[in-house]
Design a protein around this nucleic acid. Sequence first.
DNA 1: GTGAAAGCGCTAACAC
DNA 2: GTGTTAGCGCTTTCAC
Lengths: 329, 329
Amino acid sequence: MIDVAHLAGVSVKTVSRVVNHTPTVDAALTERVLEAIRELGFRRNDVAANLRSGRNTSTIGLVIEDLSNTFYSTIAAAVFEVSHRFNTQLITASSEETTSLEEEIVLDLCQRRVDGLIIVPTGNDQSYLQPEIDMGLPVVFVDRPPAGLNVDSVLIDNRKGARAAVEQLLSEGHRKIAVMVDSLHIYTMRERLIGAEEALCAAEVPPEDHIFEAWPHEPSDAAGVVAHLFDSPSPPTAVFCGNNRILMGAVAELVRRGEKTRVAGFDDFEFAGLLPHPVTVVGYDTPALGTLAAELLFRRIHGETLPPKHELLPTYLAERGIPPARRYG
Amino acid sequence: MIDVAHLAGVSVKTVSRVVNHTPTVDAALTERVLEAIRELGFRRNDVAANLRSGRNTSTIGLVIEDLSNTFYSTIAAAVFEVSHRFNTQLITASSEETTSLEEEIVLDLCQRRVDGLIIVPTGNDQSYLQPEIDMGLPVVFVDRPPAGLNVDSVLIDNRKGARAAVEQLLSEGHRKIAVMVDSLHIYTMRERLIGAEEALCAAEVPPEDHIFEAWPHEPSDAAGVVAHLFDSPSPPTAVFCGNNRILMGAVAELVRRGEKTRVAGFDDFEFAGLLPHPVTVVGYDTPALGTLAAELLFRRIHGETLPPKHELLPTYLAERGIPPARRYG
DNA sequence: GTGAAAGCGCTAACAC
DNA sequence: GTGTTAGCGCTTTCAC
């Protein structure tokens, strides 16, 4: 910057003004400075600019479970879109469902002085963030609520969605319904299980007909569970899957066996319409999760002080999968 | 930091040493400093630390087309993994297939003094990066080569992959093969089209039987193209789709019409195994694209100076989709 | 082993 | 409208 000032024959401050588009600079000088900048290939060091001005770093952090998962990458894309609207860069990180990594990454982001944080929590305690929040760091939680912290969150109405799906199965006369969920360490899985249970209880299905199968983390695990269920003497007549990966694994196995079981599952996705088996899915507006969280975050970053908000997004039921008549072969 | 030094009764320099884990600090002093840090809730400002030390910012940038696309988010996850191994944060940004946005984002990242850049180029000219590269900024291109720049790139062997798929269709006796690709502005689509054409020419398929259909950007567009093709007096007996989205749209329409056409397509994906129609897919190791690019980038960041490397990842052919006999209904 | 002073690249405050 | 000076929070240099 000093070099630029020399070459243009002005002071550093004038260069600074030109770089920052301060309106009160003589046009002739501006031109000379711009010329010098071009000649020297100068580019303002934002790190230094930020340090002195003490302003925002124009950077936010997004900590999610797994960037390669469609659900989270859709959220990331939505957050990026809002972030870009506010001229802010987005640092993304995967916590890989590991508590220690979550804390490590979050604290690193704090040291880099991000303007705010959007987090899908993995651990069962986020109180390590309390000091930062007290010092004014805006934080919004997405998909799962924080533990030990009272801050903004944007969640899906998992319970009502799961309940609606199971009620649909019950209304069609099914009584033996297998409910398959991923690890109950995950908030959304617990909620969906509760929703399903609510529906079963309300319909007075006897407890011995409630079939819960937990922990099929990979689609192939779900396939194994389905195989086990349908090899049993009295298999279920309907299956409710706690997420899209379980749904895919279950459908794969049911199709392999030629079972024409009634299937429902949480998560609507682009591919659902092509599933080789009819399914009822619980859908919701995934990008909205990210958009709402980011907009909430930027309101906080811009100084708005309202009590913590807790958004709960609604779900819908939809029919997906190829109708049997239309299938190849 | 000054406050911490005061409270601990030491100099700022000693605090700095403790924070940076310098081994030559008295244990008793270290303890006092750590105590003061805890009491004051101090956290080192990485922005300032970086400014003075002039070292790396421990930040790299990843500019891709669309974060919500499975292909790119898989790359992003792989890049993150490597990046985390090197204690580096990852700034991700979507260029949304817009030339101007790409340049804007990239230049912003340069101003923030990222240590390196991984880019899926969107525009047809990246020479705007030449000054930065000359000043030592490591840059690696992924999935598409740069234009106007001679730097590292990691690509898929699109041409050979497409050629292999079309050769497979030809070997089964198909002569009227429809080749459907997305916009030819995209490098990968041009390459895949060329690969397909090579196969058709080598098999001496008369030019009037080469059917090219370009620009179905959304799956529904692909469905429309398929509808058009099969409503014609002499429809193709086989279809080759330039990417997974086109494949999905084409399969949807073929299934809807009950056509039992032979289908092949570029891209292998988790869901391909559940497609309600047999397909031959051209697959490749997507995470490897990101991993290789990131590892190459970090070698450059760590000072290795080798001539620009151009990696070309191999493809494979695989059979996907549900076998007809196993299908529901 | 520890501290004092200088300075990274820039901008805020104020003088001209 | 423009230049000068000080200083953001830290680390480097070098003396102790």
